[in-house]
């Protein structure tokens, strides 16, 4: 069982959350010419890192907020959590 520290609600079990994928993926900006390659990278291509991975989760059975979680994909250890709008260095 993963325990995720929701920045809004505190420590909760994994059962309350839904996964949202790689948080480093950025949607191409609106009103700008977007190349096919940029769309591919946004929609399909993923680094799928082994080790530290910044990812989106939604506290779906709690506050329903999207959050960012920094987690190790080879050990499942969770290091830090952030609000969705927080920029992560």
């Amino acid at each position: 069982m993963l325990y995720i520290n929701c920045p809004h609600c505190g420590m909760r079990s994994q059962n309350e959350f839904s996964y949202g994928g790689d948080a480093s993926v950025k949607r191409p900006e609106l009103n700008k010419e977007v190349s096919d390659q940029e769309w591919d990278d946004f929609v399909y291509n993923r680094k799928s890192l082994r080790g530290k991975h910044l990812e989106l989760w939604q506290h779906i059975s709690g506050c329903r907020q999207w959050i960012k979680v920094e987690r190790d994909t080879s050990t499942h250890e969770i290091f830090r959590t952030f609000k969705a709008e927080e920029e992560v260095a």
Binding site: M1, Q14, Y19, G21, L49, R50, R71, T73, S74, H76
Partner: peptide, 13 residues
């Protein structure tokens, strides 16, 4: 399990 993982071991939920 539903999230990216290289762990080769899962969780109970």
């Amino acid at each position: 399990d539903g999230y990216n993982s290289y762990a080769q071991r899962g969780n109970l939920p």
